[in-house]
């Protein structure tokens, strides 16, 4: 049980956040958003951190799940209990497909990056083009379609906390299984891993599928919580870049890195909010500084300086 102590600490600390927020709707919304980004960053850690697959379509994966869910709920009047799994399956299928194709064609990290970036743009243009389903730039109103609990600030916070904990538990279980060992081996050297009898293709595809499912789940629930799905909610700048920065900030290939990184990023973003347009500039500076001077991230740095045994 000691192995999972940090999971309990994360759960307890995050569960106490609404008490600190004191019921202020503004801070509740910020905290809930931070949870969504935490779940996304946990997923990205699995894809990029552990299996070195540069997916530049996180927003598109989460967004395709969200649009599938909302459009099906709206057009076919299905229950969200059916449409959310459809959305999640869509995201997982797409993620697995990209991963499989990239392994099959031996795409390097860059070409996978370009292919997924192209998919991001295709998704964006499809959403804008298929106006009769998606309502284009304005977006679809999803309020009143989904779960009633996702319309209240307090209960939605705990629902997203639940999603994050599910993501973390899945991540912990995978890493404690054979896959953890395989993934550690293949992140060092893929060829050596393959030669020692590890099925590299399978583990890469599995990691991508599981992570994309997490992206999709958080994405579709976020669509209901947000009350509206529009292309800008799931754009490259509003999902991929923050998640990439949060992961680098927290520390790749660590358990707590995505949580701490996404929390730190939420604080940074709140600090630059008064400067309006400048947040894009701050993203750029953060990306450069983090990658050049701070490639390890917060968690490994805390480990070293405070001699803590952080997971």
């Amino acid at each position: 049980m000691k192995k999972y102590a940090d999971l309990v600490v994360v759960a307890v600390v995050l569960a106490l956040v609404p008490v600190l927020a004191g019921g202020s709707p503004y801070y509740m919304r910020l905290a809930t958003l931070a949870l969504v980004y935490m779940a996304w960053t946990v997923a990205f850690n699995l894809i990029f951190g552990h299996t070195k697959q540069l997916f530049l379509c996180l927003g598109a994966l989460a967004g395709s799940a969200a649009y599938m869910t909302v459009v099906f709920t709206k057009q076919l009047e299905l229950s969200p209990w059916i449409t959310v799994p459809i959305g999640v399956a869509t995201a997982a299928g797409l993620g697995a497909l990209f991963s499989y194709v990239s392994v099959l064609r031996g795409l390097g990290i860059i070409f996978l990056g370009i292919v997924t970036l192209a998919f991001s743009l295709i998704f964006h243009n499809l959403v804008l083009g298929l106006r009769q389903f998606t309502n284009g730039e304005t977006g679809l109103v999803s309020r009143g379609l989904g779960f009633p609990l996702l319309e209240q600030p307090m209960s939605s916070y705990y629902i997203f906390l639940g999603v994050l904990l599910v993501a973390l538990i899945v991540y912990y279980l995978l890493m404690a299984s054979r896959m953890g060992m395989a993934v550690r081996a293949l992140s060092d050297d893929e060829l050596t891993a393959e030669l020692s009898g590890i099925n590299v293709t399978w583990y890469k595809v599995l990691a991508a599928a599981v992570a994309s499912a997490i992206l999709g789940l958080a994405g579709s629930l976020y669509a209901f919580y947000n009350g509206i799905v529009s292309p800008s909610v799931f754009s490259f700048v509003s999902v991929d870049i923050p998640v990439l920065i949060a992961l680098l900030l927290g520390g790749m290939r660590t358990r707590l890195g995505p949580i701490i990184g996404a929390a730190a990023f939420a604080v940074i973003e709140e600090l630059v909010r008064p400067f309006g347009q400048l947040n894009v500039l701050v993203y750029g500076v953060l990306l450069i500084v983090l990658f050049v001077a701070f490639r390890e991230g917060l968690v490994p740095m805390l480990r070293k300086t405070l001699k803590l045994s952080l997971p």
């Binding site: 894009v280 701050v282 993203y283 750029g284 990306l287």
Partner: peptide, 17 residues
């Protein structure tokens, strides 16, 4: 390649912003 990709991506946001 990876480092260059991230650095120039950062630069593009910096210039745009």
């Amino acid at each position: 390649l990876l480092l260059g990709l991230i650095l120039t991506l950062g630069l593009s946001f910096l210039i745009d912003g």
